[in-house]
Amino acid sequence: MAVLNIKRLAIPRYEVYGLTLESILPLPELLASEGKVDVYIDIDQTKGVASHEHSPILCVDASSTRAHLIWGGVGDLIIEDGQRITALPDPNADEGALRLFILGAGLGVLLHQRGLLVLHASGVVINDRVIGFIGAKGWGKSTTTAIMHQRGHALISDELLVMRFDDQGQPRLIPGSPQIRLWSDALVSTGRNLDSTDRVRPGIDKFNIDASCMAPEGLRLHCLYLLDAGEELSIRPMSPSEAFFGIVPHLYVHRFGTYFLKAMGMEYTFRQLNQLLKKINVRRLLRWKDLNQLPDIAQRIEQDIFQEFK
């Protein structure tokens, strides 16, 4: 028993989304933790079912408590009971890609298993108000978050916006890891140097930047901005039903299709979304897809928050 205890103590622990992870795979993206373990991340060298060729992430099996995801060229992930992620890596898998799989899709599913509402979104704190950005892939959630953070606003999270509901039904945010992922053009446009920044994984033009200021846990979400295309920069209110259908595609559980959603319990998420809409504003942020417009967009969002909540 003593030997087992020593071995367990040697496995590093990290914190993210309010959880302490004990991971056999080093996760340098995360902050170290000495807390009581909530989630175990393990490696199983058994061969999984994922192909060796690169392919999108898919869910091949799911129930309310267990999900099996595959990513061609990277491996399999089994996520169970909101407590355990087991990775079955492809023999040639890049470790960065495996970490991305675990910390992205793996944690997204695990957090949902734990009853939290997970949006494919990012968030920052402006003047004590938490705002989130949702939008289609490539529409600048992370880029907008990065520019806001650069202007001194604390980061809640990039990629996954995770919340629980308190006794009054208010959505309370749980911060993620202190990093933002940017494509190279966005990285350069925010004044950073490509050579001194780490790639998310080899062969991809996306980089991790460190966030210097993280928000504390438990802040209330006030507003979601849906990033959209428009002829001129403007912020427009959305009716509750527009907001509903605007957010639905960005529910994390929608990522793997209806089969996965049914298995994971779509009624629960539906009720969470309905609850969320009673407590927050949702606005459409229209702008050109032009990185030169970033400072104007940031200023416009700040003005909107100052005016709305002064």
Partner: peptide, 18 residues
């Protein structure tokens, strides 16, 4: 499962077919 999202005079109900 459905949710009444009516606001003011604008009636709206969203329904999810389970």
């Amino acid at each position: 499962v459905s949710a009444d999202l009516s606001s003011g005079a604008n009636g709206s109900v969203v329904i999810l077919n389970l």
